[in-house]
């Protein structure tokens, strides 16, 4: 039995239209997949295809309209510190310092005040933010804020990280650096990662497998095994091949036919 086991999930929302009628919209339809422990999976697809919805279901923030989500043999019914979600806009508490933000999740671990501080310190150093402990999030750059969010999640030692376009708001240089740091940390700590992105290159660079999604209603279109060893180089032929395959699939371009650009 796989570590994460998603069986035939669908998700419907009812939405009130301008004319006052309630419409049911099918956001996800009959999605099934399995993820093994320690895998790095990217969910890739256009805006609105239901990537965040899948993540919310996996993380237990929402429940599926039908089907089931199991993690480690148990049905997911509510959030847990065993799987932590990292958001595009970081989700840091602006009224807490970096140190206090990282200590946030330790409230339910019965640790002494000193142990919390030591542990927070460890993860702040791990993500390279030593010296910024007493800053507030608003005093940090976007990249630094996302590092704080990563430190905060690692500090509760989760088995899984769910990441929803975590680097979407960052400039390319910072983004590449964070991608490398993330790969290093999760392989060292043997975390399972489900990572949402709509950037093909990012997905090919990071993922063991890419789940390509399409919409209306949201479903898994194709799964790609990325068999390039780490560290990956964006300029190799292999990399380019994957990028091209996935691009063509995403934009429904038939192989062999010329690509028209209007």
């Amino acid at each position: 039995m796989a570590y994460i086991n998603v069986k035939n999930i669908s998700k419907d929302y009812s939405r009130r239209e301008a004319n006052g009628k309630c419409n049911t919209i099918h956001v996800l339809k009959d999605v099934s997949f399995e993820i093994e422990k320690g895998e790095f999976v990217c969910l890739l697809g256009f805006s609105g295809c239901g990537k965040s919805t899948i993540l919310n279901l996996l993380a237990g923030f929402e429940t599926p309209s039908s089907g089931s989500v199991e993690i480690d043999g148990r049905e997911v019914t509510k959030p847990s510190t065993r799987y932590i979600t990292i958001f595009q806009h970081y989700g840091l508490l602006p009224w807490k310092t970096v140190q206090k933000n990282v200590e946030l999740g330790m409230e339910i671990l019965s640790l002494s005040k000193k142990d919390r501080a030591v542990r927070a310190q460890h993860y702040i150093e791990l993500v390279g933010l030593k010296g910024l402990e007493e800053q507030f999030p608003s005093q940090l750059s976007g990249g630094q804020q996302q590092r704080v969010a990563i430190a905060r999640s690692l500090a509760v030692n989760p088995d899984i990280l769910f990441m929803d376009e975590p680097f979407g708001a960052l400039d390319p240089v910072i983004r590449n650096k964070l991608q490398n740091d993330l790969l290093k940390i999760v392989s060292e700590q043997k975390k399972t990662v489900v990572f949402v992105t709509h950037d093909i290159e990012e997905a090919v660079y990071l993922a063991d497998r890419i789940f390509l999604m399409k919409s209306d209603p949201g479903h898994l279109e194709k799964i790609y095994d990325i068999k390039i060893p780490h560290p990956r180089n964006r300029n190799t032929d292999d990399f380019g091949q994957y990028r091209k395959f996935i691009y063509n699939k995403l934009f429904s371009i038939q192989e062999g036919k010329p690509e028209y650009i209007i």
Binding site: F61, P79, T81, I84, T85, F87, G91, L104, G105
Partner: peptide
């Protein structure tokens, strides 16, 4: 909503 999600994720009680 994101703050409330974070709170739920990190197991912070409703009261807290």
């Amino acid at each position: 909503d994101i703050y409330l999600k974070v709170a739920r994720n990190y197991g912070i009680t409703k009261f807290s």
